[in-house]
């Protein structure tokens, strides 16, 4: 009963839902480059790949899918295999060890698919640029559709960009 009591006492902690983001092309606010809703509109299953991140982005992704930001209400969902995924959420500069697995994950994801580069490192290797184990940015390995800047990007920025995929 204590669980039920806790639920009742705590109530709803989620932030109020924001309005539907503007459609692709028209926006670009705060440096976010959103994608057109395209074929995935409505519901997007995301597979997250850590290609060499410092785990800062992972914390923010975890937060975005937690009870406060609750990204699932916008039609986003994290899944456990690229076979189940519509889009890949790639973080970090791509290290040498992760370059081939990243290509394999991209191959294993069914079409149509989108690749989201999360954070400065994924966009341009960030502070790790030129590092000895770094193969390159995500865009050097697989084609990137959406980029989310920030070190790390805030949950709001993440959700705003990903809502561009779902169109909700």
């Amino acid at each position: 009963m204590s669980v039920l009591g806790k639920i009742i006492r705590t109530g709803r902690v989620a932030e109020p839902a924001l309005p539907v983001p503007p459609v692709a092309g028209a926006a670009g606010a705060a440096g976010v480059r959103p994608a057109a809703p395209g074929p995935l509109a409505g519901s997007v299953q995301l597979r997250h790949i850590d290609a060499g991140s410092c785990n800062g982005c992972e914390l923010e992704i975890g937060s975005a899918f937690g009870p406060v930001y609750d990204a699932e209400r916008y039609g986003l969902r994290l899944v456990a295999s690229p076979r189940h995924a519509d889009a890949l959420l790639v973080t970090g500069p791509v290290t040498r060890n992760m370059a081939d697995p990243l290509r394999a994950v991209f191959d294993a994801t069914p079409n149509p698919k989108r690749v989201v580069a999360v954070g400065d490192c994924a966009m341009n290797c960030g502070v790790f640029a030129g590092g000895h184990g770094v193969e390159g940015a995500v865009g050097d390995i697989v084609p990137v559709d959406v980029e989310i800047p920030g070190c790390p990007p805030t949950p709001e920025a993440l959700i705003a960009a990903l809502r561009g995929l779902t169109g909700r």
Binding site: S81, P82, R83, D100, P101, A104, V105, D107, A108, N111
Partner: peptide, 14 residues
């Protein structure tokens, strides 16, 4: 529908 042959997904392991 277009078809594409990919290897069995082994969790990143080959």
């Amino acid at each position: 529908a277009p078809r594409r042959a990919t290897p069995v997904w082994g969790g990143g392991s080959t």
